[in-house]
Design a protein around this nucleic acid. Structure first.
Lengths: 146, 146
DNA sequence: TGTTCAAGTTGTACTATACAACTAGAAAGC
DNA sequence: GCTTTCTAGTTGTATAGTACAACTTGAACA
């Protein structure tokens, strides 16, 4: 096997290991916000509000799944729906203040965990690793072969 | 923010994106074997058989979860249980021939997907990316801060 | 105006998971 | 040697996340 084939093999194995562990540990670490909820809130913050359909398309989730997630986040007081005056089918979702706070808190906690995990890495390696991950995720084709 | 902090931020974000996508696409691509089943079969192959309790410990799963996974894999004819003659509480799990075939087939399919995803990467980058992932996953402390 | 399209919700089902209660067998203490 | 305690595994129950299909409501188009 060439060095390139062997490296692809390793990348597959390690990405799989990571994917398998990720959700469970995310749930243990942040019981107040699942990985999906966290992602959706983050998207809302980044975009400054969007529609449920946009979330579904962007994250390749069924609209019914998003609908229930959104309902739960609204029940929890983390987001609010605003009817689009232009089109009454559309609800534009926005973070509430509570939602912004929880999001910031979980982000801090996740960032601290990653920082600790990556402590001792030389800056040069961190930068390169980050670039590789971005390049991997930006790849075209199937969204993820994991 | 320093370059290192910014890189940690990116690593967190990209690992999260990957983790979120991984399971769904794994299910779509390999409906015959979930990510967990694939991992368990792989472990059995690597070890040449082991106990359900070992699987639970190694993958931080509840023993009841493993018990049901194992039952499903046995129903599907992919593994078999052998009672340990030394200790009648213990069942040693082994891949069947069918299990070996399915595992090999899914491994090939996954490897092809990764190879395609990583097509065009220079060998040097593949090798470095692989090394970073191994280093990340081997890190001590919390199993995964995702 | 009526047909078709789009946004969301709800009913239903399935998978993965955990925790708790249980059974069966092994080991240890007295 | 009997009883208590530990270990391996199963089963009952509950929850989260997900998809698909059927439906409702509103918009757009021909």
């Amino acid at each position: 096997m060439s060095a390139a084939e062997s490296a692809v093999e390793t990348i597959q194995r390690e990405m799989t290991i990571f994917a398998r562990r990720a959700r469970a540990s995310a749930g243990r670490m942040h019981p107040e916000l699942s990985l999906v909820s966290y992602t959706l809130l983050g998207h809302l913050e980044e975009r400054g509000g969007c529609r449920a359909t946009d979330l579904a398309a962007h994250y390749a989730l069924d609209k019914s799944t998003v609908s229930r997630q959104v309902a739960a986040l609204e029940r929890a007081g983390l987001i609010e729906r605003r009817l689009d005056p232009e089109d009454h089918r559309v609800q534009v979702l926005h973070l509430t203040e509570a939602g912004q706070e929880i999001l910031a808190q979980v982000t801090r906690s996740r960032r601290a965990a990653f920082r600790e995990r990556l402590a001792g890495w030389p800056e040069e390696d961190l930068v390169r690793f980050a670039a590789y991950l971005e390049r991997y995720n930006a790849g075209q084709g199937d969204p993820d072969p994991a």
